[in-house]
Amino acid sequence: MAPSGASAAAKPQAWGEHLSATAVRRAGFDPALLLVVPAALFMLLLFVYPFVYGLVLSFEPKEGGALANYHHFFTSNRLWPTIGTTLKLAMPATLINVFVALPIAYRMRQPSPWRRTMTALLVVPITLGTVLIAEGMLTYFGPKGWLSQFLQAAHLYDGAIRLTHNYWGVLISLVVSGFPFAFLLILSYITGIDPVLARAASTLGADSRAQFRYIYLPLLAPGLAMCFCLAFVQAFSVFPSAVLLGAPAGPTRVISIAAYEAAFEQYDYSLASAIAMLMGFVQLLIVAFVLSLRGWFYKGPVGGGKG
């Protein structure tokens, strides 16, 4: 546990020298900077190093040349379609989550007892996590669960209802866990926008829709882009629900399942690292694309709110 030890040592030292800090700073070194060293070292050692290690390892396959893993990935029928499968799940889920959460969060921009209750309730599915949601959905959405019984009793839908062990099960689970996340994040961005701006617009005759289009949306664009990225990252790395609720051999064989199988079933860490790197790369492309989109909305200062 080297990092924590270093932190304990660094703390008293830096505070102890606080008085002479100005003198030392003049000499070019500020002891308070030592406080950040354990955290930085820890991240370098446990985040950056494994990442770089994985990148290097992915070019050192068990057999073949440096690019053999990547060649294998793009030629194997078991591997390359996983990218499409994952995107086909993650994209609709993220779009639903963000663009359903947006009008609801906008509606609740004024503080009210309702909002407190809602936010407290919506936090529950996030904290329960994907594994519990998967187990709950197997019971509730299953062919003999309450939902299909209700739909059949009410004659809303009479056919067999299959919402588990297929694409839809995974998509629903991504919405159940992702929607509250998107809602709370967007709500925190919206409440950060100064309501005085909207009041000024309304004095000038803007109705709620115009206020949204010309005041909130431009100010919200950076936050919305960030929210989309985070929601997408979550959906893109879908693992437990794709295994438990989906059909992990076929329609919901997502890229994280492929990476996991390579690492822990075939013990081919090199191939697994290659898949993980490709996964990171695809996701980085999407994040970069979305972040570049937000320039369309608004080019002014990003603050604008009460901060």
Binding site: M43, L46, F47, Y49, P50, F51, Y53, G54, L55, L57, C229, L230, V233, Q234, F236, S237, F239, S256, A259, Y260, A263, Y269, A272, S273, I275, A276, M277, M279, G280, Q283, V287
Partner: peptide, 18 residues
Amino acid sequence: LLPLMVPPITYGIPLATV
């Protein structure tokens, strides 16, 4: 910020290897 932006599975697999 990066560890919060990259999904756990992506860095978890190289990390587990190490």
